[in-house]
């Protein structure tokens, strides 16, 4: 039988939706028994949320001041000591998971499957390569622990109908002191989160300045959505790095994705392929973004966005 250990991701208070998506992936492994591990300074609140996730039977809490700001290099030996007795160890394909899981896999001396996008069997998964231009089906050895990161955009979050047991786990490993947290400069949290928002409006290089990028924020606000950006817009300083969408930014799957003044380079498209509806606004009718758009509008964004804002105000969107 498969026993899956999912590493919970959180900000100290709230369990990340990425973990609910990871659990949802794990539930697709036939007959899997799922445990979520919560490492935190005080895991109480986060563990309670994890316990409600449908499909989870156990929640393990590991508390300690040193887990206040979990970092891969410090956390990995702890995860390894928990991993014995599990067949699978999963983390989300977030910057947290990508930092932690390969370190866990190497310490366990097992290969890792990155960005698992579908479950074909207990040890067989699909994942994208070449910025999503090819999909491979990989089979991992069944006699070893399978370490994987889960491509969150491929799985709906697990529902919260469960009531798992919560147990404090004792982990005795030497704490690495070679890696020390200093600070985090987090984005303002009064906007919907890009990774989980149902609607996302993204701006590209064409916006031309940080001031003009406000046009994107206004449309997002009208739609009740999150804001994204192309790499070019982030590199130019119009938008902060955590808003980058694409192969090397965030991979998202909103109901609505609106790409404004974005050409549609493959590195960008791979981040939005799973969006249900894609809208493209671009003055160049030949831009590759139109090849993936459900609705395309050719024109100057500086004329279109104010009109769109007015139309959305009228229709009372939200």
């Amino acid at each position: 039988m498969s026993k899956v250990l999912v590493i919970g991701e959180h900000d100290g208070h709230k369990l990340s939706q990425a973990t609910a998506r990871c659990v949802s992936c794990a539930t697709q492994i036939p007959g899997a028994e799922i445990t979520v591990a919560v490492f935190a300074a005080d895991p109480t609140a986060v563990a309670a949320q994890a316990a409600t996730l449908t499909g989870v039977t156990h929640v393990l809490t590991i508390s300690g001041a040193h887990h206040a700001h979990p970092m891969g290099a410090v956390l990995a030996p702890h995860v390894v000591s928990l991993a014995k007795g599990y067949t699978h160890v999963f983390g989300a394909s977030t910057t947290f998971g990508k930092d932690l899981m390969p370190r866990v896999a190497a310490l366990l001396n097992v290969p890792q499957i990155s960005d698992a996008m579908s479950v074909e069997g207990a040890y067989t998964f699909k994942r994208p390569i070449y910025a999503g231009n090819a999909i491979v089906t990989l089979e991992a050895p069944a006699d070893k622990i399978l370490v994987a990161t889960v491509r969150t955009a491929s799985f709906e979050p697990a529902a919260s109908t469960g009531s798992a047991t919560i147990t404090a786990a004792a982990v005795s490993v030497e704490m690495p002191t070679h890696t020390r947290f200093v600070s985090v400069q987090a984005a303002s949290s009064d906007r919907p989160d890009l990774a989980s928002a149902a609607k996302v409006v993204s701006g590209g290089r064409a916006l031309g300045s940080k001031e003009n990028f406000e046009l994107i924020f206004k449309i997002a606000e009208k739609l009740g959505g999150a804001v994204g950006a192309s790499r070019a817009a982030v590199d130019a300083g119009y938008a902060p790095n955590e808003l980058q969408v694409g192969q090397t930014g965030k991979i998202i799957a909103p109901q609505l994705y609106m790409a404004v003044g974005i050409s549609g380079a493959i590195q960008h498209l791979t981040g939005i392929k799973d969006a249900k509806t894609i809208v493209a606004i671009n003055k160049d009718g030949e831009a590759p973004i139109f090849e993936v758009a459900d609705f395309g509008l050719v024109g100057d964004l500086f004329e279109i966005l104010p009109q769109l804002e007015a139309a959305l105000s009228q229709s009372g969107a939200k």
Binding site: T179, R180, Q185
Partner: peptide, 12 residues
């Protein structure tokens, strides 16, 4: 560059 924004760490 982390999902939340920018994190600073110190390493040996």
């Amino acid at each position: 560059e982390v999902d939340a924004g920018l994190e600073t760490i110190e390493i040996d």
